[in-house]
């Protein structure tokens, strides 16, 4: 079972102990196992290697691998905490835990901040906001003039950038989202509450006894 035994390299990817994942997330052991059913589906869509690559992630999000999205890319990279270009089940489950309705608000705030801090500079800059706005508009086919876009960004920074340095730092982001909770709407997935009923087949593979 050694991690570095080269003979075991071709062994199919094994589920990380669900009890450990459950202890580190808001999920119960059964929920972790049900989530694994979703993970198996996504991770076998292109290459059945037990890992989710970027293409499979985009395919699951958009139902097409032709679509490119800076957001999907950023979300994938944030999920990929080991930074090796693929998501193992532990990374997938731990990241999705942040999206659970019962996850702590500060985790959602932190994740959303890192999401929008595209350049990973520790703050959200004006250029990043414009870049993300243009991407969203292009995605939805909505057309706004540059003047209107600049105006919206001006207003947003007027409100958010309370230190007036042209940047939205973590504290400013926190204040902004507490004023506008709807900005965190996409950080909560109601689906995660019903994960065991969505994927009931997990009971056939369960490695733990019911308590």
């Amino acid at each position: 079972l050694g991690c570095c035994d080269t003979k075991n390299r071709k062994t199919p990817y094994r589920l990380e102990n669900p009890e450990i994942i459950a202890s580190e997330t808001v999920f119960s052991v059964s929920e972790v196992e049900a989530l694994y059913e979703l993970y198996k589906k996504i991770s076998s869509a292109v290459v059945d290697d037990g890992l989710i690559n970027k293409e499979e992630f985009q395919l699951a999000l958009f139902k097409t691998n032709k679509k490119e999205s800076i957001f999907a890319e950023r979300v994938f990279n944030l999920f990929d905490t080991k930074n090796n270009g693929v998501l193992d089940f532990g990374e997938f489950a731990r990241a999705l835990s942040i999206f659970h309705p019962d996850a702590p608000l500060n985790e959602k705030i932190d994740f959303s901040f890192r999401l929008y801090d595209l350049k990973q500079q520790g703050y959200i800059g004006r250029e990043e906001v414009k870049h993300m706005m243009l991407a969203t508009l292009a995605e939805s086919g909505m057309n706004l003039s540059d003047e209107v876009i600049e105006n919206i960004i001006d207003k947003t920074f007027e409100e958010a950038d309370t230190k007036h340095d042209g940047r939205i730092d973590k504290d400013e982001w926190e204040s902004l989202v507490l004023q506008h909770p709807s900005l965190l709407k996409n950080m909560t997935l109601q689906y995660l509450r019903d994960i065991t009923t969505t994927f009931p087949s997990f009971v056939f593979y369960s490695q733990v006894e019911d308590t």
Partner: peptide
């Protein structure tokens, strides 16, 4: 009170790429 205006992040947060509920849809 401030006038109600569209916040840039409100618009951005509607991006399809940020809607992870799609992962659960068949």
């Amino acid at each position: 009170t401030k006038p109600v205006t569209m916040n840039a992040f409100e618009l951005i947060s509607r991006s399809q790429g940020l809607n992870l509920s799609n992962l659960f849809e068949k």
